[in-house]
């Protein structure tokens, strides 16, 4: 595979860009011209070649730079990666899931050889060659979850299942949309979703929880979620809000196309076999309005979705200050023509 990894930043000078190919494979989340809240859970099955869902774990051109960004965040704030003591079995489950998946999907970049509990992991893009004993924490340079998630795009949390609920008892979050792992760790499914407007009244979370309690081995599921971010900033945590909050006031009619990003989360859920825990992956994708507008269908549809978004949802997602500017900028692509079915580009 001829993919080259981009050398770019997600802070300060923000040199992050998508190649034309990366734009084409962007997991655009809207399948209609109107906003609809839905849980939209579906089997995490193999998508078309080249798409973000071709493989269970998606590695793309931003991989190396995203891993560098993650290391920077962890250096500043180690609380972004935490695990309660009873989650160690689930951590090892996650090591197995990610290593086997990455090595199966991208054999030219990653390889895993196993002889009983003696494992040998090679990560060529990051220059890592590690022999270790599966199950023995002393044989890795970091705790197991941190070790493997420093090498895998996306945030992860590990959910323990007990008392007919699931509990976020471990995780790593360096690229999150305004939620705090340090605050939410130890919460159950209802509790960590507490700040989401509307959905509780609609019974959405009760249904989703029942579904997840019965999630089965080898039958992962996924859904898409989205928000908007100013600048290609991955770390929009509440911890850092004093630092990035003012970005929202810096959007102008002139810079909106390049400064406002649609941020899509491909969320995956797997049942883990040894721990009976669930891994919840939150893999973020960023594309600026200008990048999205290379497909006029996406520009038209996004503008129509933003217009139909209830104010409470806009406020919750932090869009209030720049929604009108975004819609105005996107309107240059509005010709009142219909959009084609499905989420894909023109």
């Amino acid at each position: 595979m001829s993919l080259t990894f981009r050398d770019e930043t997600f802070r300060d000078d923000f040199t992050f860009r998508n190649s034309p190919a990366a734009i084409r494979r962007f997991p655009f989340p809207f399948d209609r011209d109107q906003y609809m809240y839905s849980v939209n859970m579906e089997p995490h099955s193999k998508g078309p070649a080249g798409s973000a869902t071709e493989f269970p774990i998606d590695i793309d051109e931003h991989y190396v730079s995203e891993m560098r960004e993650r290391a920077l965040v962890l250096q500043q704030d180690p609380l972004r990666c935490q695990s309660l003591p009873h989650m160690i079995t689930a951590e090892w489950d996650l090591v197995e899931l990610l290593m086997t998946s990455m090595a199966d999907s991208y054999p030219h970049w990653f390889s895993l050889s196993r002889n009983g509990n003696d494992w040998h992991w090679i990560n060529r893009p990051l220059g890592i060659d590690q022999k270790f004993t599966f199950g023995n924490v002393a044989t890795l340079p970091y705790p197991p979850m941190e070790y493997i998630t420093r090498q895998c795009q996306g945030d992860f949390s590990l959910l323990d299942q007990r008392d007919d609920n699931i509990w976020m008892d471990a995780g790593i979050a360096t690229t999150q949309a305004d939620w705090s792992l340090d605050f939410d760790i130890g919460m159950n499914f209802m509790e960590w979703h507490a700040p989401v407007p509307f959905a509780h009244q609609m019974g959405v979370f009760e249904r989703a929880l029942k579904y997840l309690l019965n999630l089965q081995i080898d039958k992962p599921v996924r859904r898409l979620n989205w928000t908007m971010t100013i600048n290609p900033r991955l770390d929009t945590s509440p911890e850092q809000y004093p630092h990035w909050g003012k970005d929202r006031t810096q959007v102008t009619a002139e810079n909106v196309g390049d400064k406002v990003y649609l941020r899509v989360e491909l969320q995956g859920l797997w049942r883990l076999p040894r721990s009976n825990a669930i891994v919840f992956s939150i893999r973020g994708y960023l594309a600026s309005l200008s990048e999205l507008a290379t497909s006029p269908k996406w520009a038209r549809r996004l503008s129509r979705v933003l217009k139909s978004l209830p104010d409470e949802i806009a406020e919750y997602k932090g869009l209030s200050r720049h929604r009108a500017l975004s819609i105005a900028w996107l309107s240059q692509f509005e010709d009142d023509s219909p959009t084609s079915p499905g989420c894909g580009p023109d």
Partner: peptide
Amino acid sequence: GISLFVRDHYSRRLGAFQGVIVNAEVA
């Protein structure tokens, strides 16, 4: 010293509500 808005979001582990800066966007 940061001015915090007290969110209605409670952590049992910490036994505390979450305080988040109220004027990050416009001081």
